[in-house]
């Protein structure tokens, strides 16, 4: 069974194999419900999401958040540490300044996920500005939660694909295709994946002119400048949340040999466009 619904700003597809139809139909709904829940908790386009409330209030008082939000923030901080600051979800001020996120009050100093603290009682506070955008990790997190919900509901195998961030579950090999960074309507065979995840980052879609300057949705937290590479960056990892986050580390470093890839059992892949873009 296959189903596709608009979620996370993209088309999310769920496919279930080797499972009886009644179980599959219940499982599919559970999978989409998990993704909706992640979106509800973490979208910065929703003023009442946990992340929006952290961005607005956590500098002034501790903000209570849901367990999933705590989990993703703890992971985002661990990734920040192990990537030596290359993965930083505190880039919302730059994205807002470039017209890619809703505008908020300007920050007084540099925003970083390193400034947040997770308290014992399930709250989030900030010791310095932390305006978060989980665009680099939440889609992968949602895909993992969906896959878990599918398995818990009795699905034996299949795939969850949120606009290119995907997770294969079950024992069967899945053929994986990647878009050509030069022509995203063309896809190419990349390999076979079983029980794992893959995510890809490229700036060729998000790139645009903002006040005469070229910007993209990928921010280098060190320079606070947009990444404008024409390559695409894919990471294969056991979990989609890791694959998703590490594509940003790969895009920023251009280095497939960083220690954090092996630490998370991840395989980085960099792709050249098949032809030079205009």
């Amino acid at each position: 069974m296959r189903a596709c619904r608009p979620l996370l700003g993209t088309y999310v597809e769920i496919r279930i194999d080797d499972t009886d139809p009644e179980t599959a139909i219940v499982a599919v709904d559970a999978g989409f419900a998990a993704i909706s829940e992640v979106q509800r908790l973490m979208s910065v386009f929703d003023e009442n999401s946990d992340i929006s409330r952290i961005n607005r209030f956590a500098e002034r008082f501790p903000v209570p958040v849901a367990p999933w939000t705590r989990e993703i923030l703890a992971l985002a901080q661990a990734l920040y540490e192990s990537s030596d600051g290359l993965f930083d979800c505190g880039i919302a001020p730059e994205l807002a300044a470039w017209g890619l996120l809703p505008a908020r009050d300007p920050v007084s100093s540099r925003s970083s996920i390193a400034h947040i603290r997770l308290t014992e009682d399930g709250c989030v506070s900030c010791v310095a500005p932390a305006r978060l955008d989980l665009g680099g990790i939440a889609k992968g997190f949602a895909v993992d939660r969906a896959a878990e919900a599918l398995i818990a509901a009795g699905a034996r195998g299949g795939i969850v694909n949120a606009g290119g961030d995907l997770r294969v579950f079950g024992t069967a090999d899945e053929a994986i295709y990647l878009r050509d960074p030069a022509d995203p309507t063309q896809v190419r065979f990349a390999g076979q994946l079983a029980d794992g995840a893959l995510a890809t980052s490229g700036t060729y879609f998000s790139r645009r002119e903002h006040r005469g300057e070229e910007v993209s949705a990928l921010v280098d937290p060190r320079t606070r400048r947009p990444v404008l590479s024409q390559r695409s960056y894919s990471v294969i990892a056991p979990r989609c949340v890791i694959a998703d986050a590490l594509t940003k580390v790969l895009a920023l470093s251009g280095d497939t040999n960083l220690a954090c890839f092996s630490r998370y059992d991840a395989h980085p892949l960099i792709f050249e466009p098949s032809r030079v873009l205009p």
Binding site: A3, L7, G9, Q39, T185, G202, S206
Partner: peptide, 20 residues
């Protein structure tokens, strides 16, 4: 519910609250 969809783009969309 999407019934037919020829997928050609995916990554360019931000993490928007969409369906909700």
């Amino acid at each position: 519910e999407i019934m037919e969809y020829v997928e050609s783009y995916g990554y360019e969309v931000g993490e928007a609250s969409w369906r909700n």
